[in-house]
Design a protein around this nucleic acid. Structure first.
Lengths: 158, 158
DNA sequence: TTAAACCTGGACATCTAATATCCGGGTTGT
DNA sequence: ACAACCCGGATATTAGATGTCCAGGTTTAA
């Protein structure tokens, strides 16, 4: 799995803590975790294309969540970064060589079906967890975290 | 996901149809699907290390299932080929840069926990499906398949 | 209206892992 | 003894992930 997923989820968490009325430049999000700014920017662009964050140009511009964190699931973020492909790619080898000499059946590949079933369970679980859920867990385990983020990003509100 | 997983599952299916008392050379399994023999051999070696198949040297040697297909799950095969690593690799970016200046908390990373939860659902689903289950599905949808395999591999029994 | 701060997207360069091949070894049946 | 197998390390090859750069555009503020 793409490392960008980790970056994207943590970035969404930070954006959630900073509020919707606040735009954060990619460079600043990158500096917070010491990530390569140009590359993180690409992941944020993917989030923007997926409608998870919105971007604004110009000074005081940057990224912010496109909707409340309760309505952003891990599945949304993973799909935005990883793309639409299934992890298991069925190449239909069952139809190659000696195996395919018979009927080029229109029945679905049973191996593919089984792998997809597992992948759907994975997606279902990802879809059941929102950015807000994760933020709540962090707030619960280390209450100072959100405040530390706001401090570092220069937000002065309580 | 590694393409070898697809090869391995299909190979296990074939070995299941051919029975436990029959050793099949890697080259023959590869020819059946027109796969590169030396590379498929590597995947089969991984299955052997994982105890899913057994290998015998010499003429009339080859691979066969190490136990009945009811006792081989998709999870077993995937773990053998893909290795033990989680798909999502947590690099603990939460402790880098400005974020890490505070307490290097011993609390688990919430993002990691959420991703792992989804991955466990995936593994659970894989573990619930055996090679025998898949073989049964294929037998159900295209009853001629098993017989075609036995024919191609030169088995004469009914 | 100029300058600076920001995003956008394409074109690269680099690095890593998957894919694939090869060969020198074993083991075993005939 | 020979041939048919497996074993596993060394080595290409390739594709994708990672990372950089730049030439545009948009917007704020002076």
């Amino acid at each position: 799995m793409n490392e960008g997923v980790e970056w994207a989820v943590h970035s969404c968490l930070n954006l959630a803590w900073l509020g919707e009325d606040r735009a954060v430049p990619a460079a600043k999000l990158a500096a917070f975790y010491e990530l390569p700014a140009a590359y993180l920017n690409k992941q944020l662009q993917a989030l923007a294309r997926a409608g998870i964050v919105t971007s604004t140009s110009g000074p005081r511009g940057g990224f912010r969540l496109a909707r409340p964190p309760e309505q952003i699931t891990l599945m949304d973020v993973v799909a935005a970064i990883e793309g639409p492909d299934e992890a298991f790619r069925c190449t239909e080898i069952r139809h190659r060589g000696g195996s395919g000499s018979g009927s080029r059946s229109e029945t679905p590949c049973a191996v593919h079906t089984s792998m997809r079933k597992a992948e759907l369970a994975w997606r279902r679980e990802l879809a059941s967890q929102s950015i807000a859920d994760i933020a709540a867990t962090v707030d619960d385990h280390s209450p100072a975290a959100a405040e530390r983020v706001r401090r570092w990003f220069g937000d002065t509100r309580t």
